[in-house]
Nucleic acid binder design. Structure first.
Length: 908
RNA sequence: GGGCGAAUAGCUCAGCGGUUCAGAGCGCCUGCCUUACACGCAGGAUGUCGGGGGUUCGAAUCCCUCUUCGCCCACCA
């Protein structure tokens, strides 16, 4: 059968991948099935668990575009899920999206800004409607992008964090924590983003080292003298309500209890003693601004100092400051304050000072620590079990050292600010009674229209919850919790969480705590934290740097398989993935080329399996009687077995790159380059054993495709379905994982075939050195000290002849002819090829000789020209130089030619 | 300021006490359009395994130190 008409030589995944994905989804192959066939004989170190394999997708922002980090994350997860599914486990991969409060709200606000409107113009209800509309328009895009990568999720269970049932879970958790006093409302210093106009959690306020200044400023004392304080934010001086010194500091001890006069404001402020002050830093005296600094807030609380907020929501100076400062931007005010101090002679000095400045993780604006009313979760009680789970080993991290980070964070955990001054998100389920006599605050699972206490009118809290408050619940809220049901008991707890280290605290740690608190069990046992995608300058890929790679673009140009192969083979545990956004080919052509190689291997094999291939049981052709197998057959079967073990063990240990490379080596180097090349005479009927060769080749190819399927699902599916024994109705995605079979192990075959490979290599080297045309055959004489090898050559010399292109292969004592090329292998095997056979070398010598002769003639002519005094006298300098350069170049060429002739052993 | 990781071919990375551990892919050089594949085939070059010291019969592999890069945490104003 001529397959060429059906299968073009160039593999094109376009369209094919989408079609396959639609089929998979339609056939429900990604849905969990408890009736899956049990795993075959163990091919692994650890037999698969009988529990379902459940994995949770880190929810991308619902309206975002996929970036390469997602490509990496989804590829890894899909490899794991597909591997477990093929091993026969009941698998579930839950996809989902995140409403991403700040980000999504920002997007819609920007759209409004183009219409010249703000969210306040629309009002809350209308604004939220607009956001929903935007989400509905764009939200499915990201899920289709996930599909395009081949991710085998169960779409029936896709969640969105603002869905009704997930929202119910959010309420349940909030109220439950509130009732147990684990949620409280309080006035604290929080990180405020003056651009997004909302509070941020500590994790959302990213600290960046910044080169700043440290201003040393003098405050006059009430009763004479001065005290110097140091600050990085002079504008906050306007809100100072005290000065703190260390109680034991001999320089200042006497001043405690006295007062200073705050310059510019003329406020009388006390000097207090507090342990928090480091006498060694700055001047050893600290200005205290309780409303704008967390440390100062604590000091102020201890000393009973008032708090004066001096800024508006958008970080301009407010009415609490002297009139001339009002309305100024905080950084303008900073300059103004310093200038006035200087004018008053109160500026002592300015030091350069490097310090950490918090910035909004969404818009990079410098956050303003600010006193305000917010909701908090008391974390200590929730954290204790989460720490214990790590310490007793029930929660494990890969790479291991990430666990230490987790533990450190948990140990120093601080209360979580969960309120956000946004409109997009889960509104805090708290109602305030408006009746002045009642004023009751109620947290409720259902909306309230009247105060449960006095039936008076109520008003719901304006704020929404931090997006992560809902995300932390998805391991159980996406399975129907708080309703208890079969889904929940079957799929909770899950197995593995695969995510980027950036959200270890945002998401992972909080899921652990929530799971332990509300489900009384860990949401997963293993946390695999993969690396970050960076460019060749090792910068994180990001939109703002413009160094990103669009995974969909890669899929279009190279195919999802190529993307996945590149990502998986290039990422080892604990390292980052470096890709070049300027040169996609450098990164992704390897994957594309591999897919094309597989395609062509398939084309070749399929063109030879016209009729039914002799069925072979198990993964290995062990039912073929050993006697029928040639050395090459036994070798490839043994290599196949080795690869099954290697790849399986690697997948189990998250060493996905090792797995991918092991299969790659087997398919390309072993199967294609050696085995298939070697058996061609059998396939073409020039030698006996064609049936066996065909069977062995297709069977081992089948095994290798299955091993590769988790990494390259599309090309493997495409080819596998056409292999003998399978139909278009079958799917490799639910085919049995190849079983290891000890009977296929064959150390002797590996060793002996290895010797033949060396032999072939030696002959090929000689051929290359003498520039023998590929079409020409040569005679080789081989003398080996090993009776083993001699026997092999006797029986299987044909394959050496084929691979090294020999016309004859003689065995026996080495021929000591001078006109022959020789090679000696490490084991002492000697190869002799008569020079007469290397006929091309003589032709080449002649050609080189002619060329060299011509060149030498030209050189002597040129030398004569340059030596000619008339030429030297008349020609312009530039021309002389040019002619000299010409001569030098020719001499160099002649040298190269002579060297080439010498290398080929040409006669003089 | 604490804690952690990494430094191996031009690039990205395997190898982490000893039998081919000096490797892979890409890149580079030479020759081939040998009818599965030029997204290919064959051959080839390239590294005192960051510097220094130590442990050992033996170290890229363990220990110390220095240098250089990353990452995490931290209220030093």
């Amino acid at each position: 059968m001529n397959q060429d008409s059906v299968l073009p030589p160039q593999y094109d995944p376009t369209g094919l991948e989408q079609e396959l994905y639609r089929q998979w989804e339609r056939r429900g192959l990604f849905e969990p099935r408890s009736d899956r066939t049990p795993p075959g004989p163990p091919s692994s170190l650890t037999p698969p668990s009988t529990r379902p394999y459940v994995i949770m997708m880190p929810p991308p922002n619902v309206t975002a575009q996929l970036h390469m980090g997602h490509g990496l994350n989804l590829s890894i997860q899909d490899v794991l899920v597909r591997f477990e599914r093929m091993r026969g486990r009941d698998t579930l991969w839950v996809p989902g999206t995140d409403h991403a409060g700040i980000a999504t709200q920002n997007v819609v606000e920007k759209m409004l800004a183009k219409e010249g409107r703000t969210r306040f113009d629309l009002g809350r209800e209308e604004f939220v409607r607009r956001v929903w509309q935007h989400v509905e328009e764009t939200g499915s895009a990201i899920l289709n992008q996930v599909r395009a990568l081949g991710a085998s999720c169960d779409w029936h269970r896709a969640y969105f964090t603002l869905d009704e049932d997930l929202s119910r879970a959010v309420r349940e958790v909030f109220v439950s924590l509130y009732e147990r006093s684990l949620i409280y409302r309080g006035k604290y210093i929080i990180n405020w983003c003056p651009r997004c106009l909302t509070a941020l959690s500590n994790e959302e306020a990213e600290k960046t080292e910044t080169e700043g200044k440290l201003w040393h400023l003098r405050y006059p004392l009430e009763d004479g003298g001065r005290i110097t304080v140091a600050t990085t934010r002079p504008e906050t001086i306007l809100g100072d309500t005290g000065i703190a010194v260390h109680p034991e500091d001999p320089r200042y001890r006497a001043l405690i209890g006295r007062h200073a006069i705050l310059p510019l404001v003329d406020r009388k402020i006390p000097i207090v003693g507090d342990e928090a002050v480091d006498p060694a830093f700055g001047s050893g005296a600290v200005k205290v601004t309780p409303a704008h600094d967390p440390t100062d807030f604590d000091i102020g609380k201890r000393a009973g100092l008032p708090s004066i907020n001096v800024m508006t929501d958008d970080a301009h100076m407010n009415d609490a400051v002297p009139e001339r400062f009002r309305g100024l931007d905080r950084f303008v005010a900073r300059k103004r304050v310093v200038a006035e101090f200087e004018a008053l002679g109160l500026l002592e000095k300015i030091d350069n000072h490097q310090h950490a400045v918090g910035r909004c993780y969404r818009c990079d604006t410098v956050v303003e620590p600010r006193l305000s009313d917010q909701w908090f979760v008391k974390m200590k009680p929730l954290a204790a079990p989460a720490l214990k789970a790590y310490q007793d080993g029930s929660l494990r991290f890969i790479p291991e050292h990430r666990g230490a980070e987790y533990a450190q964070w948990i140990e120093n955990i601080r209360d979580w600010c969960i309120s956000r001054q946004l409109w997009w998100g889960h509104r805090i389920p708290v109602w305030y009674c408006l009746a002045p006599t009642c004023r009751k605050i109620t947290a409720s699972r259902t909306d309230l229209s009247a105060c449960p206490e006095c039936q008076g009118a109520v008003r719901q809290d304006d704020d929404v919850l931090d997006t992560w408050f809902s995300s932390q619940l998805v391991p159980f809220s996406s399975l129907g919790w708080p309703e208890s049901g079969d889904e929940l008991s079957r799929f909770y707890p899950g197995d593995t969480l695969v995510t980027a280290p950036e959200i270890l605290f945002f998401w992972v740690a909080r899921m652990v705590m929530a799971g332990l608190e509300f489900m009384n069990d860990l949401p997963f046992r293993t946390v695999y934290l993969h690396g970050t995608v960076r460019d060749t300058r090792h910068r994180k890929m990001s939109k703002s740097l413009g160094n990103g790679i669009d995974p969909l673009d890669v899929v279009t140009r190279y195919g999802a398989d190529a993307l996945r192969y590149t990502v998986v083979s290039g990422l080892s545990v604990g390292t980052d993935l470096i890709l070049d956004p300027e040169d996609l080919d450098a990164s992704f052509s390897a994957g594309r080329n591999f897919a094309n190689k597989l395609w062509n291997m398939g084309r070749l094999l399929l063109s030879h399996v016209d009729g039914p291939v002799r069925p072979l049981a198990g993964g290995h052709p062990d039912v073929v009687r050993k006697a029928e197998l040639t050395l090459a057959d036994r070798w490839i079967i043994a290599r196949c077995e080795e690869t099954v073990r290697e790849a399986t063990a690697a997948y189990e240990r998250f060493r996905l790159n090792d797995a991918a490379l092991a299969v790659h080596r087997f398919l390309w180097s072993d199967l294609a380059d050696w085995y298939i090349e070697g058996i061609k005479p059998r396939l073409y009927g020039e030698q006996p054993g064609g049936d066996v060769a065909r069977a062995v080749a297709t069977q081992t190819f089948d095994v290798a495709l299955r091993l590769l399927h988790p990494v390259m699902p599309f090309i493997t599916e495409t080819l596998w379905r056409r292999l003998p024994g399978h139909t278009e109705e079958d799917s490799i995605s639910v085919a049995a994982w190849p079983a290891s079979d000890r009977r296929a192990t064959d150390g002797g075959a590996l060793r002996r075939f290895g010797a033949l490979q060396e032999l072939v290599g030696a002959i090929r080297s000689i051929r290359a050195e003498y520039a023998v045309q590929p079409g020409h055959t040569v005679r080789a004489r081989i003398a080996t000290p090993s009776p083993d090898i001699a026997a092999v050559l006797e029986a299987d010399g044909a394959i050496v002849s084929r691979l090294a292109k020999l016309s004859a292969l003689d065995l026996g004592a080495p021929e000591a002819q001078d006109d022959a090329a020789h090679a000696i292998l490490p084991d002492g095997t000697a190869v002799t090829i008569p020079l007469g056979d290397l006929v091309d070398v003589l032709k080449e010598c002649a050609r080189l000789g002619n060329e060299l002769g011509r060149l030498q003639g030209a050189i002597s002519g040129q030398e004569a020209k340059l030596d000619n005094p008339q030429f030297a006298a008349r020609a312009p300098a530039a021309v002389v130089d040019r002619e000299r350069e010409k001569l030098a170049a020719w001499r160099e060429q002649a040298g190269a030619l002579a060297e080439k002739r010498r290398r080929l052993g040409c006669p003089e």
